[in-house]
């Protein structure tokens, strides 16, 4: 193996994706662009339990000023936000549809994400479904798979490095408060760097 961990080092080296698929579904530019403009994220499968990964992610996104919209069949409110039983019940614009459900269910959510005019269809770490990607892609959505939206945010706003994780971000440019590192177009509020 060569020296792989340049910028955008692929942290998910245990990834389900081939190198070609990563280039499409984990492209650093796509990830950073998404983090930069996302102001509302619908989270399908957001748990009501505070120790589940989805709850961590939702708490984190909320703290960054991002509107989270829980999608859950039974719950009423999660993290203080009104819950909708399906994506199609959400009455407001959704930028990113973020999935915490098994891979095989993803084509259904992809079709719904197209119907509600979401911009990005994002499957969490460990999830991959090419059929879902095709549906979302044909509907005009960008698709990200097998990445955690919290980890990616922490990678590019610099906070993940506080825990000694390999962000793969390498630059001689001075960090900017409230901005994703070395990306001039992206403005993040309440960033810690």
């Amino acid at each position: 193996m060569g020296s792989r961990s340049g910028a955008a080092c692929d942290l998910t080296s245990h990834s389900l994706l081939t190198a070609e698929q990563k280039a499409i579904y984990q492209a650093p530019d796509l990830v950073r662009r998404t983090l930069g403009f996302a102001s509302s994220v619908a989270i399908v499968g957001l748990s009501t339990k505070r120790q589940k990964a989805s709850y961590f992610v939702a708490t984190f996104l909320k703290s960054r000023g991002i509107k989270i919209i829980p999608v859950h069949p039974k719950a009423d409110r999660i993290l203080g936000e009104k819950v909708y039983p399906t994506l199609k019940d959400i009455p407001e614009p959704v930028d990113v549809v973020n999935i915490f459900r098994p891979s095989h269910e993803c084509p259904i959510y992809a079709a719904q994400a197209v119907d509600i005019n979401a911009k990005v269809f994002w499957l969490q770490l460990g999830l991959f479904n090419e059929e879902a990607a095709t549906i979302a892609g044909a509907g005009g959505l960008d698709v990200i798979m097998d990445l955690c939206i919290k980890m990616e945010y922490g990678r590019y706003d610099g906070t993940m490095r506080f825990l000694g994780m390999n962000t793969g971000v390498l630059t001689s440019k001075k960090a900017q408060i409230g901005r994703i590192s070395s990306h001039e177009d992206v403005d993040l509020s309440e960033c810690l760097l």
Binding site: G6, L170, T171
Partner: peptide
């Protein structure tokens, strides 16, 4: 653009990572 796709070499990472 910032060259985020480059695989930087060992020495570069020794100094910058």
């Amino acid at each position: 653009k910032p060259d985020q796709k480059r695989d930087f070499g060992f020495e570069t990472r020794m100094l910058h990572a």
